[in-house]
Write a protein that binds this DNA or RNA. Structure first.
Length: 214
DNA sequence: TTCTCGTTTCCTGTTT
DNA sequence: AAAACAGGAAACGAGA
């Protein structure tokens, strides 16, 4: 990894980036899309490349918001395919560099994320990080898996971005949610508008199951 | 290429 | 009245 130019890091596997490179890369995108950087927390931008590469689309959006998050995610995917060697996504068993540079509480549950996340998984991943999801959704009853949409149209837009469909609405998203009742991925919660409950065929949201120390 | 799955889109009717 | 909820039906795109 010999480097000379300021931006040499852009030609290497993003896994190798230091936290400075990551920060540089983020600010580059901030400039490029004229994003209002004052809405960002420097804390969340401080991570090394390996940590960055661990993040999936939803986590990226949870931290950086729908606009910047999407740009970062797409750009990172391009970097990965171009310079990231043979891996489509990061090695799940990577030892994890927990340097003081990394976000100390950066311990996402290791959920196997198949290509093309499903809607319920997308929703679940937003809920797993309530402190970072910008008030999009919240748990009504964490134990029971009951949750509520706070910004239904915003979530729908995010879902649409993920599927490259700018015309997604809550109306249409909710139809897909209702199909989950029969498959018992969701259970009905009636009388409660915008409230749903995870069913027995869902996974990855229970605190015990995920081992988040609760 | 065809088939399935998981939605997406549209719609009509009901409920809150 | 507006926004959600209910599902049927058909179209769709990705992947096997």
């Amino acid at each position: 990894m010999c480097g000379t130019a300021l931006s040499w890091y852009r030609q290497v596997n993003p896994q190798c980036w230091t936290s400075e490179h990551v920060l540089e890369w983020i600010s580059d995108h901030v400039d490029r899309i004229k994003f209002d950087a004052s809405t960002l927390t420097l804390d969340y931008c401080t991570m090394d490349g390996a940590t960055l590469c661990q993040m999936n689309h939803d986590q990226m959006i949870s931290i950086f918001g729908p606009q910047l998050g999407l740009h970062l995610h797409q750009s990172l995917q391009e970097h990965k395919t171009k310079y990231g060697g043979m891996f489509g996504f990061p090695n799940p068993s990577s030892p994890e560099s927990r340097s003081s540079d990394s976000d100390p509480e950066f311990s996402y549950p290791q959920i196997s994320t198949p290509r093309g996340t499903h809607l319920w998984e997308f929703i679940r991943d937003i809920l797993i990080h309530p402190e970072r999801n910008q008030g999009l959704m919240k748990w009504e009853d964490r134990r029971e898996g009951i949750f509520k949409f706070l910004k239904s149209e915003a979530v729908a837009q995010m879902w649409g971005q993920k599927k490259k469909n700018s015309s997604m609405t809550y109306e249409k998203l909710s139809r897909a949610m209702r199909y989950y009742y029969k498959r018992e991925i969701l259970e009905r919660v009636d009388g409660r508008r915008l409230v749903y409950k995870f069913g027995k065929n869902s996974s990855g949201w229970k605190t015990e199951e995920v081992g988040m120390g609760m």
